[in-house]
Amino acid sequence: MSSKGTGGAENVVLVTGGGAGIGAGICRVLAGRGVHVAVNDLDADAAERTAEEIGGTAVPGDVVTDGEAILAGTLAIAGRLDGLVNNAGVIRRAPLSDLPDRDPTLDVNLRAVAGLSARCLRSLSESNGAIVNIASMAADVPQLGGGLYAASKAGLVAYTRQAAVEWGPLGVRVNAIGPGMIRTAMAEAVYADPVLHEKRRTLVPVGRIGRPEDIGTVVAFLLSTDAAYVSGQHLLVDGGLTQTLMAHFPQPSDAAPSPPASADA
């Protein structure tokens, strides 16, 4: 995306959950391209660390309850908002049969996205801005034992498509990204084990585990004018992993082809 808005001011993008992991990777990529990033995180210290690292502004708060304050803190930077990246998310691991009556997963992963996006709509329409929602490949492939995580991300993709249709006439594009296996601090216990790392790596057609910056570069594209005609999409950034389903089906051995059918058959 261009580092300057239509009025010559520096572009401002709000990234939720930007204190660590994929969110921090997104913040680093955007800042490296001249964008002023408003770094939101529930962990105020994490938001401050990322903001200090990239020269952005920390806007801590809970996306579920503090949407107005988060937007106000972002607009205080330059009086404008050019992009919103809804990255904050949670996963509560449990079988579906054991879920509590009120699970926070839907609140954070879906309801908060809808609420904050609606609050930002006026500012984004004034700048012809864009929204990128961080969904998951779990939106298409169930994550067993992940509680309502897959359902929340599938809902987020449906929300993305509807928002794209409703808000396109206002000049606001809305897209989603579905990350695959990404190496973050939260997943380090898995990837620090060389055996587990190799087992996962070999599943990915491009031959490696993703980095947070792999998501950040695609976010930057979707926010930019290069993607001016892209809206309502859920772009999987997974190295081709979700396309490998058929490769796991047992197949006849090429070394022992079936005998030709008898002429009497």
Rank of each mutant, 00 (worst) to 15 (best):
F249H: 08
F221I: 01
A256I: 13
G216F: 01
V15L: 08
S231R: 01
V108Q: 01
R200K: 14
I77K: 09
V132N: 01
V141K: 09
G115V: 15
N86S: 08
D226G: 10
L75P: 01
A263F: 07
Q143L: 12
A185S: 09
G171S: 12
R93Y: 09
C120V: 03
N11F: 08
D45K: 14
I70K: 03
S136N: 04
A189D: 10
G89P: 00
G61Y: 08
D82S: 01
V35S: 04
A72F: 05
A94N: 11
G207W: 00
A46W: 08
C27D: 15
I209H: 00
G147E: 11
G21M: 07
A72K: 11
I209N: 00
K199A: 09
V64S: 11
D264V: 06
S97V: 08
E166N: 13
A189C: 10
G180Y: 03
H36S: 08
L156V: 08
T225A: 07
G25L: 11
P260I: 12
G155K: 07
G19L: 14
A135V: 01
K199H: 04
G79P: 07
P252M: 09
V172R: 04
T16F: 03
A46T: 14
E48A: 07
G5I: 00
G216T: 03
E188W: 02
A78S: 09
A150W: 01
G89K: 02
D66R: 04
V157F: 02
D193I: 00
R201V: 03
E10T: 14
G180K: 01
I134M: 03
A220F: 00
G56Q: 15
R49S: 08
I22V: 13
